[in-house]
Every structure is written in structure tokens, then in C-alpha cells.
Amino acid sequence: MRGRGYRIQHTVTAALKITVLLVLASWVFAPFVSVVLWSVARKWYWPSLLPQELGLDYWYEALGLRRGYALTAAVGIIDALKTSIVIALIVTVITELISLPTAYALAKWRIPLKPLLVFLFLMPQAFPLQPVYVNLLLIFYRLGLAGAVPGVVIAHIIPCLVYAVWINAATFKSIPPDYEESARVHGAGPLTTFFRITLPLSAPGLIASSVFVFLYSFDEFTGTFFIGLPNVVTLPMLLYSASGYNMQFASAVAITLLIPSIIFMVVLERFLKSEYIAKIG
């Protein structure tokens, strides 16, 4: 009798587990399946659950292999992709260069007024950024940076800098001071020590923060919307404008936007912490 009771309980537990997984999986994947279906649907009349006719037409258009009626927008997807990549690369390089000294100082030295600094460097995470972008637009109008790539780069650097400083500071902090001290004892200068000891040891963390910054800039919407439009059309801007008139094309753009995240996830999975990724976009 005991055996049978145990078996029933076991079956109930297994059924419960499978239900939990199924419910969670449908909740998580259904919207994704929906956008993938839209990107390959040629004919899809309701009330059918699935498209009647599939085709890659919108993908050919999205990838610039074929000119189509979807491309009524002034900017094609290839141009937008180029703009996005160029901006993201510039933002990554500048952000890393600016963040490294600050991160090092925060991680390794005693700094006067440190709580105040920490507060300032966490503020962009804790308060809405949109009002800042709205007023930055006002300032940039006067400086001629509105609607220009340098303005958008600055807009992206604000949140990216904050994340890069914290990720890099945590990385520097995790390196035991013994290594640097023994290099110094053996006669290496501070710069040699930094470039020969500290920098190579922190490479994984620095790569992680660079990837994070790249993805953040690549997916950024709000800053580009206020500072960049109508001249600077990145991929998220193209997605937004296409979404109004062509659902299939917009869906293909949406999936294209995921490609860098997926590549970095697969290649650099061990460098990246999910929690950082969560804040993107």
C-alpha cells in the first residue's frame, strides 16, 4: 500500500512539474513565435491560427536582397544597420576609455566623498532618463548636435558609462592586490603594472562590459528618438516607423535586432551575466 501511495504522489508531482514548465514556456515563447510567424507570413487571414502561405519575401526585402513595396521608408534596413553598428562601436570605444580610469580609482583607492560619487554614478539607473533626453535635445539644438550622430553617441554614453563603470570596477576589485604589489616590488612602474598585470587579468570583465555597452547602444530607443530623429535612423527607429504601416517588415526588423544579442550570447556566454543584459533597451 505504501508503494502505491508513493507512486500516485510521484505521478502527481511529475504532472505538476510538467504543467509548470508548459505554462511558463507558452507564456515566454508565444509572443516570440508570433513575431517570427509575422515575419514569414505571406497570407494570413483570420480566424486561422497559422498563416496560410509562408514566404521569405519580407526577409529578402529586410536584408536588401530585393526591393519591395515595403521599403517606402526613406531609409532601408542595411543603411539603418550600418548606422546602428557604427554608433554602437563608437559608443563602446569612448565609454570604455572614459570608464576605465574611474572604475580603477573607485575599485582600488580611497576616494574622498565616495558616497556622493557612488550616488551620482547610480542616479541614471534609478531615475527615468527621458526628461534628461528631452532637455538634452534643447541644449543640442543650440549646439547643432540635434539630429546628428555625435549627439546620439553622447545620449547613448550616459547610461552606458554608468554600467561600464560598475562592471569594470567590480572586475578590478576582484583582482587580488598581491599580483600588482609583487610586480611593483620587482621594479615595475605603475603603468607597466597596469598594462602587464591588471589589464590582462581583467580582460574577461572588460570584454563583458564592452559587449554590454555595444548591445545597449545597438538596441537603444529613447535617446535616439529624441536626439537623433529624423536624421539619424538606427535599426530601432526603423522598426518603430515600419511598425506603423507594415507589420511583416517590422517583424523581420525586430528579429534582425536580436541577432547581435544571440551571437554574443552564444560566443561570449560565460562572460555575460544575465542581469546586465536585462537592462538593455
Partner: peptide, 12 residues
């Protein structure tokens, strides 16, 4: 990213 979530929800 949020902008893709928005597009997903628009189709979904």
C-alpha cells in the same frame, strides 16, 4: 530589448 518586446506585443 524593449523595442522588440513592443513589436512582439503588437503582433501578439
Amino acid at each position: 530589448p524593449m523595442v522588440v518586446v513592443a513589436q512582439m506585443m503588437r503582433t501578439f
